[in-house]
Amino acid sequence: MAKKAKKKKKAAKASNGKMSMKGRIFMIAFVLLGLAFLPTSMLLGVGMLPTVVVFFMGNRRNGVRASTVAAMNSAGCIPFILKLWAGENNFEASMNIIMDSQSMLVIYVAAAFGYMIDWVVTGLVSSYLYQKGMGRMMAIQKKQAFLVSHWGEGITGKSDKGDGG
């Protein structure tokens, strides 16, 4: 009970918009790392914009879709990060990649591909699950009809006729 209460308190705090201590430390570490690797951070910041957009688009439950897009988006960023790291790895080199329309097109097409994966796979899976559910409903009805044929309407609880036992 005490644990549940604590969890509730935490959830309440999160809903108030205040960050926890762990989150704060994580954020500070993230900012410091970003500053330490500024050229890479810049490239990722601009390259991963589609993921950020998907994350904030629609409702908060789009986290999974953002993850899908992020996976492909990051795959698009990897070659250019490696290129940056293999070169001078400074602010100017990072800006050159960012300003290169071909590079950004590759990164954003990869992100779009991620979005496409989400759309196609989700459609396929939900359709499959729907059909499976319908099939189960049919099987239940069949089984119930079998039971009624063997034991009469009484087992449905709708008729008093056969429920005399």
């Binding site: 879709r65 796979v121 989700t122 459609g123 396929l124 899976v125 939900s126 359709s127 699950l129």
Partner: peptide, 10 residues
Amino acid sequence: GLTNGHDAAA
């Protein structure tokens, strides 16, 4: 099935 679909897509 959307949730499951999104998970599978991810």
